[in-house]
């Protein structure tokens, strides 16, 4: 009591002192508010309503356009099958939930996710950095970008070994675009154009070309059909396929990413590729 009285007395005697407290009090209030905001943000960020909904309902709603074999297509009974379907089933099995495939046209998939009609998109979806303010993405599970491929026993080890070589491409394709870039850098590269990728492959296998440039999907289809070719180096133009999620679904994102990492380690993704690109699964 005395202390209080004494302090009060000091304040009365020195009115300027009270004014000096105002910035300090203001600062403390500001720090307090900032702390409250950070803490509330931390706790609210911890909530992943998408993951909660999946856990509560036991259903993971996956948007997919089943028109892109072998990633997604319809079987004779009209049921969706394919690489992405099997991947979604494997993920759901880990979480103890069911998969509900929602068939949507490719150009409507993102809007469906943003509108909350689905929880995720798994549909051979290319990563789009422009949409990362609106969507979250998983790690990549398939590289569909343009790859350089050669006969299994060819000495070519990288795109740097193409000087003077014959490069087969589908006329007008992304592979053709990459070939023209390589040709600009090294005019000794001979670009051979064909109406389609199968003709370019035939030229390679017949020894009429030294290498081909094709997208990753076509390459795997060629390998799956028994062609003795191997990819050389990384994709010349990356086009990774990913699973898209709502922006706040960080728990779901973590679950998918850890599963994909494990699927890579265990060989599950490799098996999926072999299953769906061999043609046998269809």
């Amino acid at each position: 009591m005395n202390v209080f009285k004494k302090t009060w007395q000091v304040s009365e005697n020195l009115p300027g002192l009270r004014l000096r407290f105002i910035p300090t009090i203001g600062l403390l209030v500001a720090v307090g508010l900032l702390g409250f905001w950070l803490i509330s943000r931390y706790f609210s960020a911890d909530e992943d309503t998408t993951w909660q909904r999946i856990q509560q309902t036991g259903v993971w709603r996956v948007g997919m356009d089943p028109s892109f074999p072998p990633f997604e297509l319809l079987n004779g009974a009209g049921e969706p099958i394919g690489y992405d379907v099997d991947l979604a089933l494997a993920l759901a099995e880990r979480w103890g939930v069911q998969v509900q495939i929602v068939a949507i046209g490719f150009d409507g998939l993102t809007d469906a996710l943003l509108a909350g009609k689905v929880d995720s998109i798994a549909s051979a979806l290319p990563y789009d950095p422009r949409l990362t303010a609106d969507l979250s993405y998983s790690a990549s599970y398939f590289e569909a970008g343009v790859r350089l491929a050669v006969a299994a026993d060819a000495p070519i080890q990288s795109a740097n070994d193409l000087a003077g070589k014959r490069l087969a491409v589908e006329w007008g394709s992304n592979g053709d675009a990459e070939a023209r870039k390589l040709q600009r850098a090294d005019p000794s590269i001979q670009r051979l154009t064909f109406p389609g990728a199968p003709e370019a492959l035939a030229a390679l296998l017949a020894g009429e070309a030294d290498a081909i440039l094709v997208d990753g999907v076509t390459l795997r289809q060629m390998q799956g059909s028994g062609s003795a070719i191997r990819a050389v180096g990384d994709a010349l133009e990356s086009n990774p396929y990913v699973i898209a999620l709502p922006i706040g679904a960080h728990v779901l994102q973590g679950q998918i990413n850890s599963a994909l990492a494990e699927f890579t380690t265990t060989g599950f993704l490799k098996n999926l590729e072999e299953r769906w690109f061999s043609g046998g699964a269809q």
Binding site: D65, S67, F68, F106, E170, W171, G172, S173, D176, T193, P195, G196
Partner: peptide, 16 residues
């Protein structure tokens, strides 16, 4: 259009 998935597209060569 030469999109590989759009149902009204053609191959890149046919587009050219």
């Amino acid at each position: 259009n030469d999109h590989p998935r759009w149902n009204r597209s053609v191959s890149p060569g046919r587009r050219i």
